[in-house]
């Protein structure tokens, strides 16, 4: 890549926007951002573009770099919400089984089966958390993590659990 191969030409905003439209749709589709959720992402990125335009050398490259970053943040936020919900639900299952006895027992057994497929580190953590009801500070102390990193480690283990339940399950049938 050489700047000499790409001389900078000031493109009017309207022209730039129409030029990037197909790539925008392609990018949102690839990142699986539903149309209703793209408005905020696109508006924030384009607002930043018009505010910062004098300092931006290649607006198109900047825009797509920024949008990719925002799409990743979108998913990170949503995953965090999902992990929180899953954590709450599983804790509820284990702490106060409201369903009929047989159903509760099935859930616990199925969950244990899924957790057993995870790497050692996650297996230990999730068993302490859901089997023995350890709180994050207790988990950190017991497993030798710092108080600041335990939340990240827990999130990674919940991510592994969910992958096992969804994508990974497809490739590990019967394992």
């Amino acid at each position: 890549m050489s700047a000499l191969d790409h001389p900078e030409v000031e493109v009017p905003l309207e022209q730039l926007l129409e030029r990037v439209r197909p790539r925008l749709k392609s990018l949102f589709a690839r990142y699986r951002i539903p149309p209703q959720d793209t408005e905020d992402i696109l508006q924030q990125a384009l607002l930043a573009l018009v505010y910062q335009r004098p300092n931006i050398r290649d607006p198109e490259a900047w825009l797509f770099g920024t949008l990719r970053n925002r799409c990743l943040i979108y998913w990170r936020d949503r995953r965090r919400r999902l992990y929180d919900s899953v954590d709450t639900v599983v804790l509820d299952w284990m702490a106060a089984p409201t369903p009929p006895e047989q159903e509760g027992a099935d859930l616990a057994r199925d969950l244990t089966r899924v957790v057993d497929r995870l790497p050692d580190r996650c297996r230990s953590l999730l068993k302490l958390r859901y089997g023995l009801g350890y709180e994050p500070p207790e988990l950190a102390k017991h497993l030798g993590y710092s108080q600041t990193s335990i939340s990240k480690v827990t999130t990674r283990c919940l991510a592994a659990l969910l992958r096992q339940l969804t994508v990974a399950g497809l490739y590990k049938k019967g394992s």
Partner: peptide, 23 residues
Amino acid sequence: TAATWEVAPAADPSAGTASAVDV
């Protein structure tokens, strides 16, 4: 759910155009 779970494809999305990508 597999389709909704894979959010960041390895290929660079900027490399594609609308015609090359299945919207």
